[in-house]
């Protein structure tokens, strides 16, 4: 048994001239909560489609839970729960019957425990009260919950969730985060794609960042934070003394008039700088750090632009 939940080597998907996914080498360890980040159109969903055998790679290899995809699709996918590009259900069936139908699709799923498993999954996403309602009458958030329930109908070793909090209210978003934490605590590997960075940061142990079809960074959150440039900003009436402390710590001080900026390097922490400033009697009005969040790194790696790549 391999210690990798997802492994891809040189994965490529081309649509005509465009390389939607380019030389992707994903490496998701078992037990991780892996945040798969990237702007719209950066190839996240295309990658997920290939992982699940919905689309075939133009080149490269995929291993899911140690098995080759799509060659071993019948053995692997029953152990993988998925939410891909939004939930889907039969609008003329109730939420519960939609789940029964999707569960019956796999010949290995046990019909004797189906009712119990479906009801448990509905309960887990807080949908049991609406289980008998036609899913066509569900709100966007309820559909999203139903999609999550479908991924949880069987015990899974790996969950692949594409934008799981899409359309959910703040309570729903919190519940999904708690759900992901609980699943991870049970040993399920969770691969979650999102563009809502703050959410990812709260639940993930690992992350990968896509840009224009390429994986530009991946690793544990701590490893990723090391990649960015961290800056510290202080506001003080004692600018010259502060600049001296910055210089001593190797921070390359830049005086911006009302505040002083420096670049944190070599594992130097904000709290160390604060202690040194206070130790030298520098009076502080404000002190802040940037480049610490995934969002800063995300923007640094994928660019500021708002326009979707053509």
């Amino acid at each position: 048994m391999t210690d990798r939940a997802i492994e891809t080597v040189g994965l490529v998907k081309t649509f005509g001239q465009q390389r939607a996914v380019d030389d992707l080498a994903l490496d998701v360890p078992r037990g991780a909560v892996f945040g798969f980040l990237g702007p719209n159109g950066s190839g996240k969903t295309t990658t997920i489609r290939m992982l699940l055998g919905l689309a075939s790679p133009s080149a490269g290899e995929i291993r899911l839970l140690g098995e080759t995809m799509p060659g071993r699709i019948g053995a692997v996918l029953p152990r993988v729960g998925a939410l891909v590009e939004g939930p889907a259900a039969y609008p003329f069936l109730s939420g519960r019957n939609s789940l029964h139908r999707l569960d019956a699709a796999d010949p290995r799923s046990d019909p004797k425990t189906r009712r119990q498993r479906v009801d448990r999954a509905l309960e887990r996403v807080g949908l049991q009260a609406a289980a008998k309602k036609r899913s066509g009458a569900y709100s966007l958030g309820m559909k999203q919950r139903l999609g999550l329930a479908a991924a949880l109908v069987r015990p899974r070793d790996l969950l692949i969730l594409d934008e799981p909090t899409n359309g959910l209210d703040p309570q729903g978003t919190r519940e999904v985060r708690n759900l992901i934490r609980a699943l991870a605590a049970d040993g399920t590997t969770v691969f979650v794609s999102s563009h809502l960075l703050s959410e990812i940061e709260q639940v993930c142990t690992h992350a990968g960042i896509m840009s224009a079809g390429r994986l530009v960074a991946q690793g544990t959150l701590d490893q990723l934070r090391q990649l960015g440039t961290r800056r510290i900003t202080v506001q003080t009436p004692d600018a010259s003394e502060a600049a001296a402390v910055f210089a001593r710590l190797g921070l390359d001080p830049v005086d911006r008039g009302d505040h002083l900026e420096g670049e944190l390097r070599d594992g130097l922490q904000v709290e160390d700088v604060a202690a040194a400033l206070v130790g030298d009697g520098v009076r502080l009005r404000g002190l802040s750090a940037s480049g610490q969040t995934l969002e800063d790194l995300f923007v640094a790696l994928t660019g500021e632009g708002f326009d979707v790549r053509g």
């Binding site: 489609r49 699940l52 055998g53 919905l54 699709i73 019948g74 996918l77 029953p78 993988v80 998925a82 891909v84 590009e85 939004g86 939930p87 889907a88 259900a89 039969y90 609008p91 139908r101 999707l102 569960d103 699709a105 796999d106 010949p107 799923s109 479908a150």
Partner: peptide, 18 residues
């Protein structure tokens, strides 16, 4: 059109069987 095809295939249903 409903989007259920991707969930059937990811179940996995087996394309021939479907």
């Amino acid at each position: 059109n409903l989007g259920t095809l991707r969930y059937l295939l990811a179940a996995p249903v087996g394309r021939l069987r479907l």
